[in-house]
Design a protein around this nucleic acid. Structure first.
Lengths: 211, 211
DNA sequence: TAGATTGTTAATCGATTAACAATC
DNA sequence: TAGATTGTTAATCGATTAACAATC
């Protein structure tokens, strides 16, 4: 079924199309041309059409795109038509922030467990979920499927915990630790390196001043 | 001073070089060739040399690169040799997570104020910093310089608060809201769209299964 | 000096943009 | 039908990789 490998540049843009289409739906817009959308999103109309046509022809000549239809199609392409069970490793502020973000649930990402190495946190509630001790991870995984693991723990632990999770069959990692994970090829790793993000601001501020 | 516009692809990679060099220093490694580094980082040696030579010749033929020297040079390029005053708008879990991350201070990013619209949070402490009410923003900015504003608030507020901050002279935004900011060209915007990151995981999981 | 490895030019590859025929 | 706008091919642009002369 999978078409010849879509480039990551395209994949990175899909969620943004999805967000804009969602906003258009909220505004009551029913149809939109690649040209109108390109003005809103500040990208070329050509790129929008190219990107979408990687997945099929969703528009109609002389009309444009039906907003709701395209929105649903992109959801399907992104796999948002299924639910994903997410466990969070690390019940610190970042783990809490993720656990508490309601919009994720709306998109089918369900927080099914939260683990932490700190015994004092064990048993406390975060939203609807009770924190378990990290030592219970294997036992939990034996009885529950895990689609995605969010790692909101320090880098020293993150690499090891990712190994443990991989042995338990987890194939997708949302990595917030300031390190690269060392998991096999058959895994999905999406890293959010906040410190690198901040450094880019620093660089851009500096080069703005120099003009 | 500013060399002919460095591509964003290069800038995005710089912090990662910096991280690896930091790790090498911790390991006591004094020199490294582009080849060795390329194996560790899983990028081509050619790319490393090209990237670095955008900023100058930091290596030596027949020797390679001095790790500590290169580390310091990249810090300078990234602007990490100066301090940045960061205010956080939004004292929720995400704001707290950022405020509490000690490594930022180590790189010269100082949390100088935290604002929230919720009166109940006003006066409470987050780390060393007291939360102020958002209405005090203008008064604060009159007496204190702000280099970077981190927006950890819902999208509905984020756009408006960014406008207020811009009028107060703030030129760099670390945007965690699920929206694009609408600030003028002379600003730096770095967005961390967590939901988009999660959608990419979803897509990649799906396309992995299809193989 | 011989060996190693950079800095840099040239070649390749991929992504973006432009153009336009197809068609609603 | 005439006008609008897509889907898609071709042209351009930029980024990555390969190659090698310079040089430590």
């Amino acid at each position: 079924m999978s078409d010849n490998k879509i480039s990551t540049a395209v994949i990175k843009r899909l969620p943004r199309y999805y967000r804009y289409l969602g906003e258009l739906i909220e505004m009551g817009v029913e149809r939109i041309s690649s040209n109108e959308l390109s003005e809103r999103m500040k990208v070329t109309a050509s790129q929008i059409r190219q990107d979408l046509n990687n997945f099929g022809g969703f528009g109609q000549q002389g009309y444009g795109y039906n907003v709701k239809y395209l929105y649903d199609e992109i959801a399907r392409i992104l796999g948002l038509d299924r639910t994903h069970k997410v466990v969070i490793i690390g019940a610190g502020n970042l783990g809490r922030a993720i656990a508490g973000y309601g919009n994720f649930a709306k998109r089918g990402f369900l927080i099914t467990a939260i683990f932490d190495i700190n015994p004092e946190l064990t048993g406390t509630d975060i939203g609807e979920t009770k924190v378990s001790h990290l030592s219970e991870l294997e036992e939990y995984a034996r009885h529950n499927h895990i689609d995605i693991a969010a790692l909101t723990i320090p880098k020293t632990q993150a690499v090891m915990v990712a190994d443990r999770l991989y042995k338990l069959g987890v194939k997708a990692f949302w990595n917030f630790a300031h390190t690269d994970l060392n998991v096999p090829q058959d895994c999905v790793v999406e890293s959010v390196h906040l410190s690198e993000s901040l450094m880019r601001i620093s660089y851009n501020l500096k080069s703005m001043e120099e003009d």
